[in-house]
């Protein structure tokens, strides 16, 4: 059936079965390949997107489920304050290696920071342990999230 989807601030149409996960609509129908397939069972987090601001594993989120909700993907992460702070931190600390899991890591991290501006190690571990990285960038991801929090805090200070 035909779905009208809100993706990254624009309306897109997709004619697919209602059970089709958002992941495959994004990748195969809309050509937004930044969101990655890793496991298909919400075990690795590579497919993480935001649905109305909340982190969701798009590989197990049927298109029928999202309705008119706003989907955000890695392609527009940098448009938000939190996203651009994370990207800056990722560049400063050279977090990535192969980079395949990083869109999912960044989307999970962005949702975390949006809800918790100064996460502790335990907060970070709790949220980010759903995202697997086989290259082993965990230490740098943790440091990157803290650095992004710092960037956001100092931007907040300037704004005051």
């Amino acid at each position: 059936m035909l779905y009208n989807l809100q993706v990254n601030g624009a309306v897109h149409q997709a004619d697919v079965d209602g059970g089709t996960p958002v992941l495959w609509v994004l990748r195969d129908i809309l050509g937004l390949t930044g969101t990655k397939f890793g496991c298909g069972i919400a075990m690795c987090g590579a497919c993480t997107v935001h649905v109305d601001g909340e982190a969701r594993r798009s590989c197990v989120t049927p298109i029928d489920f999202v309705g008119g909700a706003e989907i955000r993907t890695i392609e527009t992460l940098g448009e938000g304050k939190v996203g651009s702070a994370l990207q800056q931190a990722w560049r400063e600390l050279d977090v990535v290696q192969c980079g395949y899991c990083q869109p999912g890591q960044l989307m999970s991290a962005a949702a975390l920071l949006a809800a918790n501006v100064q996460p502790t190690d335990a907060d970070i571990d709790a949220v980010m342990s759903g995202n697997i990285c086989r290259c082993g960038t965990y230490g740098r991801i943790r440091a990157g999230i803290k650095r992004a929090a710092q960037i956001l805090a100092s931007a907040g200070e300037v704004a005051k």
Binding site: L32, F37, D94
Partner: peptide, 29 residues
């Protein structure tokens, strides 16, 4: 020198193309 990785920018904004991201026109899955 610890030159920053050249592949970082594309890998943090979704533009990096991995094998799985290839979509030649008319591709079937």
């Amino acid at each position: 020198q610890s030159l920053r990785r050249l592949d970082t920018p594309a890998k943090i904004d979704g533009t990096a193309k991995f094998g799985i991201d290839a979509r030649p026109p008319g591709v079937q899955y």
